[in-house]
């Protein structure tokens, strides 16, 4: 009986995974490539994916939400390549959207001062 309930729950879980409220782009692939080999090229791929996610979710007809962390990661990378005000704006967006990120984002902002 327990197995049946567990199965039903797993089915519901997997069903819900297929109708996510978020858009991820090629998150797994780009994140894996960067973490495996942290080069400027893989960093560009990662940033490109984040740009794509942000663009997709910001579109007028998009029904998807920006996943937690995307604005923060993208903003931090922008700051690192010299686009400080643009990067800070994304970090602040992260805090507005996800207030529980405030301490982590402020930690990053302090480090880059």
């Amino acid at each position: 009986m327990r197995k049946v309930f567990h199965l039903i729950f797993l089915v519901i879980l997997l069903s819900s995974c297929s109708s996510s409220k978020y858009y991820w782009g090629s998150f797994d692939k780009s994140t894996f490539k960067y973490n495996k080999k942290m080069t400027p090229e893989t960093k560009v791929l990662l940033m490109d994916n984040y740009q794509r996610i942000i663009g997709h979710c910001s579109g007028p007809s998009s029904s998807k939400e920006i996943p937690p962390g995307i604005y923060a990661d993208y903003g931090y990378m922008l700051i690192q390549i010299g686009k400080v005000s643009e990067g800070k704006a994304f970090l602040e967006k992260e805090i507005v959207l996800y207030p529980e990120s405030e301490k982590a984002v402020n930690y990053i902002l302090e480090k880059i001062k």
């Binding site: 995974c17 996510s20 998150f27 797994d28 973490n35 996943p67 937690p68 962390g69 990378m77 982590a104």
Partner: peptide, 20 residues
Amino acid sequence: YVTLVQPLVEKGFYVVPPYM
């Protein structure tokens, strides 16, 4: 590591993003 982010987020958690 990279495939843990999505299921946790989909379950409703704020996950510190991997790069940061």
